[in-house]
Design a protein around this nucleic acid. Structure first.
Lengths: 132, 132
DNA sequence: CAACTTGTTGCGAACAGTTCTCATTTGCAT
DNA sequence: ATGCAAATGAGAACTGTTCGCAACAAGTTG
């Protein structure tokens, strides 16, 4: 599953840039940021690194409503959900026993197994609400 | 919000094809189906019609993990969630007061407003499990 | 430290899904 | 029937992402 990996400054740069970003960022934006800082990293590499980080559980990923793949450096280990501000992208990680239980129960009731679930909340944080 | 709309056989064809489909379908697939039935409808029109149906609340939409936009003719009026079989695409509509409440509460706790949420379950239905 | 092996990189081309452009058609109120 | 704006279809254009491949470099080996 986890095949051999080498340490390159590129991978590290992506990891760092991701950690610095607030909330979720897309690959392209991250790439721009890095180039703006003088890095010569390639776009494809950013994609590859992000995918690797996500697979390694070091980053969280989700799809924006526009179909873009967004990533976030992941603090909480393991399964969790998000509350994301539509305005500034600021993100809170959530735990939701209630929802986990509900998902498992409903799945079982319908005879479904291997239940996975997507649960994310989008809203407007206090700060962004004032601005608008 | 709802600007004038005309009745065209194309729109009706999309509505019908969508109703006939089991589970969620993508625009391209729906287009293929229609063409296969002899229709001369254009792909762009299928996209436009689906978007219109979704906006009108007549269809439900969600993003597949591959980033495709999927639609389903919507039985239950208003807000609801889904339990979707990864195998056959069969879909059950769910209501989940628990989840609604949780979402609202958590949003409020964090000072967020205008909370929207995405809650979908993916699993393997009884039939598909046997096959595998 | 040099040679080597093989994962990694960067580039541009290739792709997939979707939207846009625009000339033409068509619904529908008059 | 007539007129006008909405809707259509074909293809070009866009967007986000992945691929192919030659050049490169990390980390091991002798």
């Amino acid at each position: 599953m986890t095949r051999p990996q080498r340490n390159t400054w590129q991978r590290e740069a992506v990891r760092a840039a991701l950690a610095e970003a607030h909330g979720f960022v897309g690959a392209q934006r991250l790439h721009e940021t890095l180039r703006a800082q003088g890095s010569t990293i390639g776009l494809a590499t950013v994609y590859r690194s992000l995918a690797a980080l996500a697979e390694a559980g070091e980053a969280d990923s989700l799809q924006s409503p526009e179909g873009e793949n967004l990533f976030r450096s992941c603090a909480t280990r393991g399964h969790h959900h998000h509350l994301i501000c539509r305005g500034c992208g600021d993100t809170r990680e959530l735990e939701a026993r209630v929802v986990e239980d509900w998902a498992a129960r409903v799945g079982a009731e319908h005879g479904f197994s291997e239940i996975e679930h997507v649960v994310d909340l989008f809203g407007l944080c206090a700060r962004c609400r004032e601005v608008a």
